[in-house]
């Protein structure tokens, strides 16, 4: 397990070192070159956090907190300050014990998000991993809207060797879910994963449709364990917060899949979302291959956050 974890951090780092630009890699980059904790130091820290998409508000909170701690504990060394900051974000992002409870139960996993974040791809990866763990998995193709979305999911399912329930393009997604639930019960499926169409959270009708899907699951399969995952593109900025809020109102969210973490984006908005809404990140996507979706590791995530690019 540890090996696996390490490889993903490697991958995150690799992503960064691939650029030909000057990169000071390693967690210490921003903390080196400062002998004292002064305004410049805080400013540099502010830059790192904002450039990581944590947002102005969360960044300010974190820095205020840090400044207070530094004063209280009479910390003089930037290195200690660094550790404190990392520890506090890590603590906040920590998943606790029951984060992946759904894997052990009969469950329905509903995967939602705006357009183009990587819902279908993520589902392909999760399905394949669960299948490898010996689970009986079924996938419901409820993105009946986007052209060829069903074909795309079908390709992933065949790669994973997992069955899929689908209707025609343009049909009612709730009906697909209904059928999939009946099939899941009949075939004694462990985990039913439902793909949904990408929807911008400000489109009211689409959000109503999502609520309907959610209701169908509750009504038709009340005994199942519910897990609803919001897929967020790590390159998304502050709008991700609004997405998380509105999707929570519509369907309730148990966790986030943060995709496209193999680029240069840090996905820092996830920290803001965790602190504001208490929704944890559960998976991160680091590539297009089937095993490129990994369970979340807070420490690696925070390390990568401070792995800043500097133009020197």
């Amino acid at each position: 397990m540890f090996e696996k974890k390490k490889s993903i951090f490697q991958r995150l780092k690799e992503g960064l070192t691939k650029t030909r630009d000057n990169i000071v890699s390693g967690i210490d980059s921003i903390f080196h070159g400062f002998s004292a904790i002064d305004d410049d130091f805080y400013e540099e820290l502010e830059e790192a956090l904002i450039m990581g998409d944590l947002g102005a508000k969360t960044t300010e909170q974190i820095l205020d907190n840090l400044k207070e701690q530094v004063k209280e504990r009479h910390i003089k060394d930037p290195q200690d300050c660094r550790q404190m900051l990392i520890d506090s974000i890590c603590r906040q992002m920590d998943l606790g014990e029951n984060a992946y409870e759904y894997e052990k139960r009969k469950s329905v996993v509903l995967v939602i998000g705006v357009n183009g974040v990587g819902k279908t791809t993520s589902i392909g990866k999760i399905a394949s991993q669960l299948k490898e763990d010996g689970k009986k998995v079924l996938v419901a193709a409820a993105d009946t809207f986007r052209a060829a979305a069903i074909d795309q999911l079908d390709t992933w399912c065949r790669r994973a060797g997992v069955p899929m329930i689908a209707h025609q393009e343009g049909s009612d997604p709730a009906a697909v879910i209904y059928d999939a639930i009946q099939a899941a019960k009949a075939r004694d499926i462990d985990i039913l994963i439902c793909d949904t169409a990408g929807r911008l959270h400000n489109k009211k009708n689409l959000m109503e449709e999502l609520k309907k899907i959610n209701r169908i699951i509750d009504r038709e399969y009340p005994e199942c364990y519910r897990e609803t995952l919001l897929v967020l593109d790590a390159t998304t900025g502050q709008n991700a917060m609004v997405q998380a809020q509105v999707f929570t109102e519509a369907a309730g969210i148990d966790g986030i899949i943060l995709t496209k973490m193999d680029g240069t984006a840090k996905g820092g908005i996830a920290v803001a979302i965790q602190s504001e809404l208490g929704i944890p990140v559960k998976y991160i996507g680091v590539g297009e291959k089937i095993d490129d979706l990994q369970k979340f590791d807070a420490e690696q995530f925070v390390r990568a956050l401070f792995d800043v690019k500097r133009d020197e």
Partner: peptide, 10 residues
């Protein structure tokens, strides 16, 4: 994507 954050410049 118009929702892109700080990474848009990269």
């Amino acid at each position: 994507d118009a929702m892109t954050g700080q990474d848009a410049v990269n």
